Computed example of a mutant assay.
Amino acid sequence: MITVRNALEEDVPALVEIGVRAWAAAVVGVADLEVRRDHARHAFEQFLAGRWLRVSVAELDGVRAAWAAREALNDEISDLWVDPPLQKRGLGSALLAAMEAEIVAAGFEAARLQTHARNVSAVGFFQKHGYSVNWLSIDYSERLDRDVESVGLRRQLVADEPIGYGPGGF
């Protein structure tokens, strides 16, 4: 059974490990895993140590299996990481729904996120859930010492109200 809950400070070490494993699976062919793994671990540790209150955790049968965050508490989902051996079991979908509900509750009408363009499984996952590619960019990554293609995705969560007078608009 999948449950989604707010993260606790004691979750941080387990969430770091989930993040590192999911990151490693996502960057195959984009980054040198052995060179960048320690940097990724440090980045996850720093992020989660200071922002665990902005993180939601998905558990599968009581075991931490995935996490997501809205780092700036705005309309952007900054992180969504599912432990690779546990993917395709509904964890990402449950977390995405929780993040979208938070975004709507905060007064935003759409959700946005980004990933690297070669992360075909992530792009496909979000498209399956109604997200559309909104932009594509190529930026130099100093950490990776190479150009990295990023893709931005967006999904309208609240239907636009017609503008006009009376029922149905003009």
Rank of each mutant, 00 (worst) to 15 (best):
E149T: 11
L86T: 02
V63I: 11
L95V: 14
K128N: 08
M99F: 05
G90C: 13
A97Q: 12
D83A: 14
N134D: 14
K88M: 09
L96N: 01
L60I: 13
S141M: 11
R70M: 07
L153V: 07
R70G: 00
M99S: 07
A105T: 08
A72W: 07
G124N: 05
D145H: 02
L60W: 11
A106S: 14
L86G: 09
E109P: 00
G90V: 14
R154P: 07
F126D: 13
R154F: 14
R154L: 15
S132C: 13
Q87V: 02
G166V: 01
I77S: 00
G90D: 04
G124Q: 03
A98P: 04
R118H: 12
R146Y: 03
Y131S: 14
L136I: 15
T115Q: 09
F125G: 00
V120W: 13
G90S: 06
P162L: 13
W135R: 08
D145L: 01
P84L: 05
V82G: 13
S132D: 15
G130H: 09
L95A: 03
V133Q: 06
G130F: 14
P84K: 06
A159N: 12
Q114P: 00
A68R: 03
E142R: 14
V133I: 15
G130Q: 03
M99G: 00
V120R: 15
A69W: 08
D139S: 04
P162G: 02
Y165Q: 07
W67I: 02
G130R: 05
L113K: 02
L95S: 07
A72V: 09
A111N: 04
I163H: 10
D145I: 00
A69P: 01
P85D: 04
N74G: 14
L80D: 01
I103Q: 06
P162T: 10
Q114R: 10
D147V: 00
R143W: 15
Y165E: 09
V63H: 11
A110L: 10
A101D: 13
L157R: 11
G166K: 02
L113H: 06
T115H: 01
L95D: 08
V158T: 05
Q114S: 10
T115E: 04
D147M: 03
